[in-house]
Structures are given as structure tokens and as C-alpha cells.
Amino acid sequence: MSKMARFVLTVNGERREVEAEPDMPLLWVLRDLLDLTGTKYSCGIGVCGMCNVHLDGELTPSCSVPVAAASGREVTTIEGISPDGSHPVQQAWLEERVSQCGYCQPGQIMAAIALLRRNPTPDDAAIDEVMGGTLCRCGSYPRIRRAIHRAAGKVGA
């Protein structure tokens, strides 16, 4: 039954080759084949956003993208944002002391960066529209909103 095939992706600027079933979700390719575990699993059905990555710059839940569909494309994960937390969105997250358990925060940060690239100074409605896709069980939403306002205008397109 195996339909194993070789796929080439660009992950955080590096060319990566993986052998996988074509329908293996990008999430598990990242986590279990490439050991990039900053991208988190939570629902697996594309409703929680904790597995958010950028696929050719577009915000995408990686659990809902088969590796075959990501082949030849640019994938950016939380590990590709900055190694030390120096990205303006990460800085805003630290300054607003956003995270509690922290598990959803990589997905939140990926969503916020995608939002700010498209809309550098979003109002609350624009924030709700994009950030509504990523859940936080600890309830850090008020701080996420403040962190996005703080990072407004600091993220290049």
C-alpha cells in the first residue's frame, strides 16, 4: 500500500528532502521527520491554529496541508522567525508578557506576523478576523491583542 515518495521543501530557507506518504500532513513532516517541534499539534483538523506556519508567506495550518501540496514551496516555521526572540512580534510578546502555558504561542505568533505583513496597523476588527483562527485555552487573548498593537508598524512586508 505504501506510496512513499521523495519531496523537496524549503524550510526556513533551507532545502530539505523527506521521504513520506504524499498525504502525510506538513505538521508531522516538520515535527516527526525534521524535528522542528516548535509547530504544535492540538486538533489535527484545522480549527485551532496551533500548527500555523507560513506557506509561501500565507498563514496556513500545517495539519491541513499534505506534504505533496507543500512540495517545492517555501515553509516558514516559528524556528525561522528568530533564534533569540528578537523579531519585533516576539519582542512585543515578551513585553506584554503574553504567554501562560505557552503551547499555542508559536501558532499565535505566526498568525500575528502574517497579519502585520498584510496590514501593518490593524484595528481590533482586523485583529479578530485573523487571530480568531488560533485558540488559546489559557486565555491570553487580551495580551495577544495588546502585543499586536505594540508590534504594529514594526513588521516589514
Binding site: E79, I81, S82, P83, G85
Partner: peptide, 8 residues
């Protein structure tokens, strides 16, 4: 906090 926001 830093390891959280960097995914490390």
C-alpha cells in the same frame, strides 16, 4: 518566556 516565543 524566550524559549516559549521562539518555539525552542
Amino acid at each position: 518566556a524566550v524559549p516559549v516565543v521562539t518555539g525552542r
